[in-house]
């Protein structure tokens, strides 16, 4: 594996459009569920163990060579909110454009052809990792970290939270993230042999419901 390629893919400045999404934090701030660093941490912890785990396992499975079409259907079944399914596909499409420029590959081309409107972002992330010569664990780490770094960065803007405090939240979550990635990788690696039902399906009801509320707002700072 190439550690440098991992840094390129995981860089927050990688042009894949993630900065426009708050991972549900914008809705949670407006509803008063996130008011500062402590509640941001609780929010990120909930995300990490629900959609973060599912995304990391999907990415690991795709990186391990599982069928991306089946993974995409599994992602749909694990994402009841149509607003979140739409956001995941838009993010997948944006990542695809950046990935094909960075690491041209037949597998990326085939996936782009299969899903012209975008596949779920973690699936694209996993196939991108393969194209970059990275492994299932690398893909899972990228997905897991993104699941919490997005909301943390967004809350700095939404609440004028001290960026040092937001970074402290992410650092405190790191040991849990390591453990969660191990679970995600084990599940993801099992998919090529056992099928997508072995993937976790952990859900955060308020993330799904909140995404639908957020999608109905006339004016938003973030796309989701």
């Amino acid at each position: 594996m190439s550690r440098a390629a991992l840094l390129v893919l995981a860089d927050g400045r990688f042009p894949a459009g993630g900065h426009a999404h708050s991972g549900g934090a914008e809705e949670a701030v407006k509803a008063g569920r996130i008011t500062g660093a402590a509640s941001l941490e609780a929010f990120c912890r909930g995300r990490l163990h629900t959609v973060g785990l599912v995304g990391a396992a999907l990415a690991a499975a795709a990186a391990a060579g599982a069928d991306p079409v089946e993974l995409d259907a599994a992602a749909d079944a694990r994402t009841p909110s149509p607003a979140l399914r739409g956001a995941a596909r838009r993010l997948g499409r944006q990542l695809m454009r950046a990935a094909r420029a960075a690491w041209p590959s037949d597998e990326l081309d085939a996936l782009a052809g299969e899903f012209p409107k975008g596949a779920h972002q973690p699936v694209v992330l996993g196939v991108t990792a393969r194209a970059a010569g990275l492994g299932a664990q690398d893909a899972a780490y990228c997905a897991a970290y993104e699941s919490v770094s997005g909301p943390a960065t967004a809350v700095v803007r939404l609440l004028s939270l001290d960026p040092f405090e937001a970074t402290g939240v992410l650092a405190r979550l790191a040991p849990e993230l390591d453990l969660m990635v191990d679970r995600a990788v084990a599940a993801g690696r099992a998919v090529p042999g056992e099928g997508v039902d072995v993937l976790p399906a952990a859900s955060g009801p308020l993330l799904e419901i909140g995404a639908e509320a957020h999608a109905g707002w006339p004016v938003r700072l973030f796309a989701s």
């Binding site: 569920r33 929010f43 629900t50 009841p80 859900s203």
Partner: peptide, 25 residues
């Protein structure tokens, strides 16, 4: 074809955050 697959874990011993603002608040 699977149209819905959802898991929820709550209570003592569940992954942290289940009671928090992303899950059940």
């Amino acid at each position: 074809r699977t149209v819905l697959d959802q898991e929820l874990a709550c209570g003592p011993g569940a992954p942290a955050g289940w009671d928090g603002p992303a899950v059940l608040a």
